[in-house]
């Protein structure tokens, strides 16, 4: 009982801390990378303090309402999205000491990320407004096209470890990281991760062509919470990417937690760069490309990984 309680406390604390720092880091990276691409002076102090100023301003802003909105589900949507991010991050081993040993961690992670669709759709639908509704539908329309490759590359990464436990997958990379062992895995995963976190090229639900889409009717605390939850999802998928493809806590000289944080930040930075450099794609074209290219490639990737894993076991 005591062990169970300690595990809950440690996991909750570490996930909470990781998400808080991760969300802050994401916002700072977004500002720094955005200004760098725009060719504007960096102004690091402003980048570091800016997130707090923005948050304070939104906290002082009244929460808006629309005619005949479903206020209960509208309020639940950001909480659900944030909770899904936290639940997903809980199975990612942040350090060797804080590794929640879940035997089917990869499957559980895939399931929580699939539920993101519910949160985004709720946020769009509840406002009883056209643009948010279309934004919600857009996410549903594109979700299957990136969730299939996401799950397939995660399964492929589990094959060399012969385990669905994420900590085991990290340990299996002791001699060779999966990013080298399975070169197709990380690029496919990053594309899917952009979709899950509805960012950049796959940020169609919140597109400017919908005046902000699912967030078009949000203001004040609701907008702040939604943006924080979206960043939390980005942190969760990046942390999982770091664990599954970049060896997680493995690395010389520095403590395991520092390696994990650096690798997660690297993946967040890559996706933020993608956000600023790759404009939104056309939904129809993305779906076609996904079913014609990404999913078949992900399937071939799984088969190859399986054959290699069997050969290794046989030898």
């Amino acid at each position: 009982m005591t062990d169970w309680l300690v595990m809950v406390v440690v996991t909750t604390t570490s996930v909470g801390l990781a998400l808080t720092l991760g969300i802050y880091g994401t916002v700072v990276l977004d500002r720094v990378i955005g200004r760098s691409i725009a060719g504007e002076p960096l102004r690091l102090t402003r980048a570091l303090v800016g997130p707090f100023q923005h948050a304070a301003l939104l906290l002082l802003q009244q929460r808006s309402d629309t005619e005949r909105s479903d206020s209960a589900t509208w309020a639940v949507a950001p909480a659900l999205l944030g909770a899904l991010a936290a639940a997903a991050l809980a199975v990612v081993p942040l350090t060797p000491a804080v590794a929640l040993e879940v035997s089917s961690g990869i499957v559980y992670f895939g399931a929580t990320m699939a539920m993101v669709m519910v949160a985004v759709f709720l946020n769009g639908w509840s406002a009883n407004s056209t643009f948010p509704l279309i934004g919600g539908y857009r996410f549903v329309a594109q979700a299957l096209s990136f969730e299939m490759p996401l799950v397939l590359v995660l399964i492929a990464a589990a094959l060399p470890a012969e385990s669905l436990n994420v900590a085991d997958i990290v340990r299996s990379q002791d001699t060779l990281w999966n990013v080298v062992r399975q070169p197709l895995g990380l690029p496919l995963y990053l594309i899917a991760a952009l979709g899950v976190s509805f960012l950049g090229p796959l940020g169609l639900p919140d597109g400017i062509d919908l005046a902000g889409g699912t967030v078009a009717e949000l203001s004040g605390t609701a907008l702040l919470l939604w943006r924080a939850a979206q960043a939390a999802v980005l942190v969760a998928v990046s942390a999982m990417g770091a664990a599954v493809f970049l060896g997680g806590w493995l690395g010389p000289w520095l403590p395991g937690s520092v390696w994990m944080a650096l690798k997660t930040l690297l993946l967040i930075a890559l996706m933020v760069v993608a956000k600023h450099l790759f404009g939104r794609v056309r939904l129809e074209r993305f779906v076609v490309v996904s079913w014609v290219v990404l999913i078949p490639v992900a399937l071939v990737h799984v088969f190859l990984s399986g054959i290699l894993a069997l050969r290794r076991i046989g030898s």
């Binding site: 990378i33 090229p201 597109g207 400017i208 956000k275 404009g279």
Partner: peptide, 15 residues
Amino acid sequence: LRVHGLEALGRRVLM
């Protein structure tokens, strides 16, 4: 560029 989600590149052009 901004309408395509490329806000930062749009600012670069405006400069």
